[in-house]
Write a protein that binds this DNA or RNA. Structure first.
Length: 454
RNA sequence: GUGGUCGUAGCUCAGCAGGUAGAGCUCCAGAUUGUGGUUCUGGCUGUCGUGGGUUCGAGCCCCAUCGAUCACCCCA
């Protein structure tokens, strides 16, 4: 290895980037906490069995597996090797895998701790996840998700609050966005009406592409997937909806009047949309998008997706209700609903729209210039006082040329430089220079602290 | 997993009909031995992504490989 490198689809985060990333994480975290969600972390790796089968066939292929330690081939049969039976081999050489999302590990946690958890259980989780996807714009192999889920409550109050959380966080970050909402029960209703109830997943995958391939494209794909002309015609009825959220719901209820699940979905949407309207949103708009489907197959009720305005970027947030997520781990009848912020994409959007506040860069407020041993000791004594007062401060660690020390402060965007040379030492003063204005004043240590505390 | 484009200094890029590598910025030093961001002067940096092939000769042509990027699939 000549030049060091990092695996594809992964990134280093420099201090400048981390400060911005933390700004995003902190904003989202504080909103989660404001709504009563509690922090949770789970291991980076899970048992393979915990993850497989939860994300569909496509998803399973994207799970990063961790090679067993030691003689990992010991339980692979000679026969399997000879015939290259990859699934069988894979299964016996990797018993752990990196987590693919935060929702499944959360479901696992709930099931394992069901007797000590008080329901409804509201948790948030901000951790990286890994997918063996091919990287491209806004798509990485390691990225962070910021999830908030509540389990053990069927109430639509949760959905309404989650919409508010989207709005609160994105408004705080000043990201212009539209929250799209739909309901899987409506899609189910359409599927029933079209006589393809057993193929709802296929149907949703096709219609999810409406905004990308257009109505003709969707019709074409449905045809290719073997849907009958009648079924396609019925599904097509969805595309003719128009008007406000409420008007679209009215049209839908006529269309789906014969479908029990369809009508239930409409009622649920009405509730969430009406409540959100009464309570009000800060800067986001809430839009019913009947073609919103979302790939994850565990969603059963409301589904959410958030699109940033003014940039070419996939959805920046997602979410929805799942009636039986914990069922696969043996705990039935626990309904949950949750959302996820895609922090990396939000970062990219904010970069593109230049939404990061300038002063976020100022981590150190004060730099003590270093003139030599005697002055240095005085500086370090002052530093202790300054730091005790809650001011971020540092000393240039060696008595380099002034030019160099000031340049350091300038590069690091440190607001003030404290100069203590022989003259200041004798008069017990500090020459304090404000870097931006260039103004320099003589102050005492107490005055300095008072000034920087602001 | 499928297909397209690309890969030259730390960064952004130039290079030509195949003839032994350049510009700007950054960085470093000095002008200015207690003062940065402006200015001026000087200086450093490359196995031209990697491996092979064609050729007297390859940064340039061919093949492979790795990486980046875009589209598809899927998704945050």
């Amino acid at each position: 290895m000549s030049q060091p490198a990092i695996p594809k689809g992964t990134r280093d985060f420099s201090p400048e980037v981390m400060i911005r990333r933390n700004y995003i994480f902190n904003t989202i975290r504080s909103v989660f906490q404001r709504y009563g969600y509690m922090p949770l972390e789970t291991p980076s790796m899970e048992n393979v069995d915990t993850l497989t089968g939860k994300y569909g066939d496509e998803g399973d292929k994207l799970i990063f597996r961790i090679l067993d330690s030691g003689d990992y081939l010991k339980s692979v049969s000679e026969e399997a090797l000879q015939q290259r039976q990859l699934p069988a081999i894979t299964k016996s050489i990797a018993e752990k895998a990196l987590r693919y999302d935060l929702t499944v590990p959360f479901a696992r946690f709930v099931v394992m701790n069901q007797h000590s958890i008080a329901f409804p259980f509201k948790r948030y989780q901000i951790q990286p996840v890994w997918r063996a996807d091919r990287p491209q714009k806004g798509r990485y192999r390691e990225f962070y998700q910021c999830d908030a889920d509540v389990v053990g409550s069927d109430s639509l109050v949760n959905e309404v609050e989650l919409v508010q959380i989207f709005d609160d966080a994105l408004s705080a970050l000043k990201v212009p966005a539209t929250i799209k909402i739909n309901n899987r029960k409506i899609l189910m209703g359409i599927a029933e009406l079209a006589g393809v109830a057993n193929r709802m997943m296929e149907m949703t995958i096709a219609i999810d592409k409406l905004d990308k391939v257009g109505e003709e494209g969707v019709v074409k794909e449905l045809g290719e997937r073997g849907f009958t002309t009648e079924a396609v015609q019925t599904i097509r009825g969805l595309f003719s909806l128009s008007g406000s959220n409420e008007e679209m719901l009215d049209q839908l209820s006529t269309l789906l009047s014969s479908s029990e699940s369809g009508m239930k979905g409409i009622a649920e949407l009405r509730f969430v949309i009406a409540r959100s309207k009464v309570i009000g949103l800060n800067s986001c708009s809430l839009e019913l998008d009947i073609t919103l489907a979302r790939g994850l197959n565990y969603y059963t009720g409301a589904i959410f997706e958030v699109k940033a305005l003014g940039v070419q970027m996939g959805s920046i947030c997602g979410g929805g209700r799942y009636d039986d997520l914990t069922g696969i781990f043996g705990l039935k009848g626990v309904s949950g609903v949750g959302i996820s912020f895609g922090a990396d994409r939000i970062y990219d959007v904010m970069t593109e729209l230049q939404l990061f506040p300038e002063n976020e860069m100022q981590s150190t407020q004060l730099l003590f210039a270093n003139f030599g041993e005697k002055e240095e000791l005085q500086c370090m004594q002052f530093l202790r006082q300054v730091r005790n007062a809650g001011i971020n401060a540092e000393i240039y660690p060696e008595s380099a040329k002034m030019k160099k020390q000031f340049k350091y402060a300038d590069d690091k965007q440190i607001a003030y430089v404290a100069i203590i040379g022989e003259e200041e030492l004798q008069t017990s003063t500090i020459s304090l220079k404000h870097m931006q204005s260039g103004e320099q004043t003589k102050v005492t240590i107490d005055q300095l602290i008072a000034k920087l505390r602001g």
